[in-house]
Computed example of a mutant assay.
Amino acid sequence: MALSNSTRRAIMARLAEGEATVMELAEPFEMTLPAISKHLKVLEEARLIQRGRRAQFRPCSLDPEAFDAAMDWAAICRDLWSARLDRPETHLARTTEENQP
């Protein structure tokens, strides 16, 4: 998944503050511009960001609709895992009750 990488999550956090160029996004990282561009490509293919074209600049910005979809997916996963993690607790409580004198 596109957000499984900490660099891409950091890029998304930066873009939450507003539009940025590739150079601005690369600034805090100790990696090459081609490496940052690869991360941006992954985010773009996941439709989490949009890349525009303004003269020689290619500003990037969040795609709000895709971000909403990602949040919906995360909520579904959270609910699923919460239910799964509750099962052992429920089973343990039931087993404990059954073994009480």
Rank of each mutant, 00 (worst) to 15 (best):
M1W: 01
M1K: 02
L3N: 00
L3Y: 01
S4H: 04
S4L: 01
N5C: 10
N5T: 00
S6Y: 02
T7Q: 02
R8M: 00
R9K: 04
R9C: 08
R9A: 05
A10C: 06
I11A: 01
I11F: 03
M12D: 00
R14N: 03
R14Q: 12
L15C: 05
A16F: 02
A16T: 03
A16C: 05
A16L: 12
A16E: 05
A16R: 04
E17N: 11
G18I: 07
G18Q: 13
A20Q: 13
T21N: 06
V22N: 09
E24C: 10
E24Q: 15
E24A: 15
E24Y: 06
A26M: 07
E27S: 08
E27H: 03
E27F: 05
P28R: 04
M31D: 05
M31G: 09
L33W: 13
P34A: 06
S37M: 13
S37W: 00
K38E: 14
K38S: 07
L40V: 07
L40A: 04
L40W: 03
L43W: 01
L43P: 01
E44Y: 01
E44Q: 11
E45Q: 14
A46Y: 00
A46D: 13
I49Q: 00
Q50W: 08
Q50K: 14
R53K: 15
R53E: 14
R54Y: 11
A55N: 14
A55F: 11
Q56K: 11
F57A: 11
F57W: 10
R58P: 05
P59H: 12
P59D: 03
P59R: 00
L62R: 04
L62W: 02
L62A: 04
D63Y: 07
D63F: 13
P64V: 07
P64L: 04
F67P: 00
F67A: 06
D68V: 13
A69H: 10
M71H: 09
M71A: 10
D72G: 14
D72V: 14
D72P: 00
W73N: 06
A74F: 11
A74R: 09
A74Q: 15
A75F: 10
A75R: 04
C77M: 15
C77N: 07
L80S: 14
A83S: 14
A83Y: 09
R84C: 14
R84E: 07
L85H: 11
L85C: 05
L85I: 07
D86Q: 08
R87E: 14
R87Y: 12
R87K: 14
P88T: 05
P88A: 10
E89L: 15
T90E: 13
H91I: 13
H91T: 13
H91C: 08
L92S: 07
A93Q: 05
A93D: 14
R94V: 04
T95I: 13
T96N: 10
T96R: 13
T96M: 04
E98F: 03
